[in-house]
Design a protein around this nucleic acid. Structure first.
Lengths: 203, 203
DNA sequence: TCGATTCTGTAGTGATCGCTAAAGAAAGGG
DNA sequence: CCCTTTCTTTAGCGATCACTACAGAATCGA
């Protein structure tokens, strides 16, 4: 059924992802993309549609690979505190890894972008992540591990802000240990836990 | 001495500042600037040099006006704790004010920008602010208000990250009270203070 | 009033933006 | 083999980028 594609679509998508990660949506040009992907513009458009759809695929791939640690941390730990602590620690690790651009693509790639669809797409992912944090904390409130008057939305906003600050610090050159110290300090805001089987103490 | 300028240079600079604040350096076009400033390109170039120098003047103006609360908070309070607490509280206020774009121009305007000079200029301001925070904390360590083993650099990085996260949250639509809650939670990381005249306790 | 000077608007510079028409190259089916 | 299909390359589309040549308009000193 015709000539076969001469490049690895998945590998090219990963290169495009890293371009968008490093330079953001708008500052990444088709010329920069094709150079990084090792192909010519018509091959890019035939395989991925256009710049906007290529970006959407790159974001999807990011969530399934580099950004998947977030969902794992929040679902695989026994307590909300362990989940958030692991989330911050793994963010410190991923954001400063030298095998890919620094920081978080979901946080930085849409900054200073004109396209409203791109802004909404990334903001939706950020709001979704914040909601997952809040729901994980709410679960521990319902199971009486955390006080009933815990400000779950406030804590979720706080940890979302800390993670976004860590991403910015990483892009400014902060090291892994720098961010691990930020993560450790951020955990001091965690509310006093209620012990299992020890009823009554609310503060 | 020739024809007099027909527009208010200071007012035009403020409009340019807000354009750069909202859209960042690279995504702000000369066409957008001239439209916001109410002048034509030749007037802009005659009065401000070029886009790069106009941006530098806008950053300088920002530091002297919208961003001046930062230095004031860190120099006018009696203790480092009060200084940082005021810094966070005023940031929550300024970043969500509706009289100008949300967030902090120093933090966001250089994201996803290619020009290395712009990146270095803004990063320099961020590093400078972080250094001022650290020096304010070190002052309280020297005066024995804070423990001698306080990780001043770690605390400075942490509060810098929190402020950067607050800026991102503001640009995502967070309210003033949202950011005030973030500020309050962030203060839980503050080390235990040593009381004046009560010697010895180091933790 | 007049020349000198400086600002202003019009209009356009070359370069780059995202994107694509056209034609040659490589694969499958007959 | 040849025809069809799909990929590839070259080349260039209109639009926008930062920036400016040019000439008219406005203000100065004389």
């Amino acid at each position: 059924m015709g000539r076969t594609r001469s490049f690895d679509r998945d590998a090219a998508l990963e290169r495009a992802l890293e371009e968008f990660w490093r330079h953001g949506y708008e500052a990444t040009s088709i010329a920069g993309l094709t150079a990084a992907m090792g192909i010519n513009p018509p091959s890019l458009y035939a395989a991925f549609g256009d710049k906007r759809r290529l970006f959407a695929e790159a974001v999807e791939r990011y969530q399934e690979t580099h950004g998947a640690f977030s969902t794992r941390a929040l679902t695989e730990e026994a307590t909300a505190r362990d989940a958030v602590e692991r989330l911050l620690r793994e963010a410190a690790d991923v954001y400063t890894s030298t095998t890919h651009p620094p920081g978080c693509m979901i946080i930085s790639a849409g900054v200073n972008t004109t396209d409203p669809g791109v802004i909404a797409e990334l903001r939706g992912h950020r709001e979704g992540a914040k909601r997952v944090i809040r729901e994980r904390i709410e679960h521990d409130v319902r199971s009486a591990r955390l006080p009933g008057d815990t400000d779950t939305a406030g804590l979720a906003t706080y940890y979302a802000a800390v993670i976004q600050g860590m991403s910015t610090q990483a892009r400014d050159g902060a090291s892994r240990t720098d961010l691990e110290r930020v993560a450790a300090l951020a955990m001091r805001a965690w509310p006093a836990e209620l012990l299992d089987g020890a009823p009554g103490r609310t503060a």
